[in-house]
Design a protein around this nucleic acid. Structure first.
Lengths: 154, 154
DNA sequence: CTCATTCATCATGGTCAGGTCATGAATATG
DNA sequence: CATATTCATGACCTGACCATGATGAATGAG
């Protein structure tokens, strides 16, 4: 459905949103290690997201990335846009250049609804929405069995 | 959504289903010309479909391809299967190896329904279904203005 | 049998996503 | 200023996908 690069971008943005409260910035290498994504490859992805205005970056010691705006103001579509056109005219399942309600391919009537739901998903869902989902908790560091200071979190 | 190859396969199977009544067999070059797909490339695709038991092929003059069984017994999933795994474990939008109801990713709850609808579409929809769709008519040779014998079809 | 016709198959090349490696450029800190 | 740290960036490699072109193998017609 999505390219690997777009998946990395989604997971990275989500990771930044979850961890930027710690000290403000999240380093590329931290994200790469947590998500098991190649360091330099992720660096390019984050650079693209920063260039598009979704992230802010700063260099040097204590540098890193953070969200450029509120998580609720970032649609998933905007995160994957540089790599995957998730809506737009690429919706015909048979690859027809011209496929619409007026000039439908044989599968148009049956595929149309699903195609539109995909578009709605990426346009309506925001990073903030995903942060409030139950699965978001298990994304953090996997619980280790070794003892740890109590109430280390916020 | 689908690779070009899988799109070609779908359109070719559909074309064969529409034209095999004319004289029994449909030649590779006829399909390639009608669908604007490279001849030799299409030949490999049809060969794969024949090897998988969806098509029957015969060589020599008056050779060609035809469906191996009733159009209603061919799921779209079977046509694209050699090139695209449209259901199965590749359904997590974040690319997680493990993503299920028990161990969900943050997007699982919101993406699950759409993902399942895609799977249902390819499993429940058959070639026969598409033949009965209105768009199927416009797939045939574009209507030419020259006169033609009346009631040439069945 | 000969031969044109058609599918089957092999060898080759272009393009691009995905990924690695090396290097450049900015910057907080001492 | 010197330096370690971090992001920025360019060159390059690899494999998969998308083809192209040539050749092989089967087969119906004469």
């Amino acid at each position: 459905m999505l390219s690997h690069t777009a998946e990395y971008a989604l997971r990275a943005v989500l990771y930044i949103a979850q961890h930027e409260t710690d000290d403000g910035l999240v380093r590329n290498d931290s994200i790469a290690a947590a998500l098991d994504v190649p360091r330099n490859y992720l660096s390019k992805i984050l650079h693209t997201l920063a260039r598009d205005g979704l992230l802010l970056s700063s260099r040097g010691p204590s540098g890193g990335f953070r969200l450029a705006r509120d998580p609720d103001a970032i649609q998933l579509r905007q995160v994957v846009a540089p790599w995957d056109a998730v809506d737009g005219p690429r919706s015909c399942i048979l690859g027809r250049a011209r496929c619409s309600d007026r000039n439908p391919c044989p599968a148009h009537g049956r595929w149309k609804d699903i195609s539109e739901q995909v578009g709605v998903f990426f346009r309506k869902t925001t990073v903030g929405d995903l942060l409030r989902e139950p699965g978001s908790l298990t994304m953090k560091t996997t619980r280790r069995s070794g003892r740890r200071p109590a109430s280390s979190g916020s």
